[in-house]
Design a protein around this nucleic acid. Structure first.
Lengths: 217, 217
DNA sequence: TGAATAAATGCAGTGAATGCAAGTTTGGAA
DNA sequence: TTCCAAACTTGCATTCACTGCATTTATTCA
């Protein structure tokens, strides 16, 4: 396990950072094109490097691993203000507020739609990459659990009073995350045309359907 | 990505299968002991082979990959009768029935408690292994989604009437899976003393807490 | 007992990943 | 502009996971 360098390091706009972004993008494009062509398993790092005209060492400097080049570029964590807004939220519903926070993060994290589509297609047709993407998501979820806990504490609940408060938070996150996956799917299928409100409405109905009219024995 | 040979192939009780089981267990033990000692990252396949006195080639014949030796032995899928019972279940609650089916599968899948404990400890202190274990679990969840769908169809619901029926199933599974994780945790923490009823009760309360008194906007 | 079958091993080779020690390019201060 | 330091790229050697293939050894069963 190694860290890859952050894709956007240093000040923006300098020659250096522009070159860096260009190189990163070139490698990504080459890698995805090759994989879409020959299948993920049959693409070697050497091939990617040849196609994008960098040394193997540079490839690993950028992405840390062969998979790295295919996975989501950024951590896609919400900004500090978004988090603060959620934690101290008016609180009509944890579900709704959490969903909105995540949605707000996802939409602008990957500005490059063409690459997003290509990568999405590749990932969803390559089991190994899909698994890695799941890992990535589950790491993000870990942060969300922290936010939900913070919100609970802000609302006056305590671990002393509810020993398994964290488990509760974990399950809320897992539920909302499921709704999110559902919404993303709809979004991609619909060519990114739906508004956020559309997606929220769909997810809302879905969650209501399973939380209402269900009785634990 | 490669397949590892099934741990228990061929008839049980023969010399061959007994030897096979013994070898597998010996390698597992050696691997886990080494990792608990030196840390997962610092254990090479060579070390494991030396400690368990087999060739590297044999190691890979058994487990297919270095991680393989650390992960859950069997697929831990419920038996056909259990599934049938769930699908045609009396149906007071999908949550409850699904939880019980999974619980029934987990308890007897890993008869060897000492190894279970050691592996559990190792996995939960090694991020990389934890991730792989999550992948494993998410693959199992995929099957559960199928079972829930089957149950829905058995109950007369249809994809025609509810286009996102599968998403609903997916979310039910994710919720129950969360409850399961919670229960497992309690079970391990309590040294495997609680009865299944205890665990169900705890999980039940947890799910109720998040499905009741929550209102989507 | 004597094939047929399964399992274990050795060996050679591929490809991912890392560390190190060069070179090259860029940013910024003098 | 000039020049230095920091950032970046690269080549090289090495380790390690993993695979295919051929060979040997151990079980099974007729």
């Amino acid at each position: 396990m190694t860290m890859s360098l952050p894709a956007s390091s240093g000040p923006a706009g300098t020659l250096r950072s522009r070159k860096r972004a260009a190189t990163s993008l070139a490698i990504r494009r080459a890698a995805i094109a090759l994989a879409l062509d020959h299948g993920y398993e049959n693409v070697t790092v050497e091939m990617i490097c040849e196609a994008s005209m960098v040394s193997q060492r540079t490839f690993f400097n950028y992405f840390g691993s062969r998979e790295g080049v295919y996975l989501s570029a950024e951590k896609a964590l919400p900004s500090a203000e978004l988090v603060a807004g959620f934690v101290e939220g008016t609180g009509s519903s944890v579900f709704g507020d959490l969903f909105n926070m995540i949605a707000g993060t996802v939409v602008d994290s990957d500005a490059n739609l063409e690459l997003f589509r290509a990568r999405h297609q590749l990932i969803h047709q390559t089991p190994e990459l899909l698994n890695q993407e799941k890992v990535r998501i589950s790491e993000a979820e870990e942060s969300f659990v922290g936010y939900v806990m913070a919100r609970y504490l802000f609302q006056g609940r305590s671990v002393a009073a509810t020993p398994d408060l964290e488990d509760e938070a974990r399950m809320v996150v897992s539920l909302v995350s499921g709704a999110m996956r559902y919404a993303m799917q709809k979004w991609v299928a619909g060519n990114f045309t739906q508004t956020r409100e559309d997606l929220v409405r769909g997810a809302s109905e879905l969650i209501q359907r399973i939380t209402v009219n269900e009785h634990w024995p």
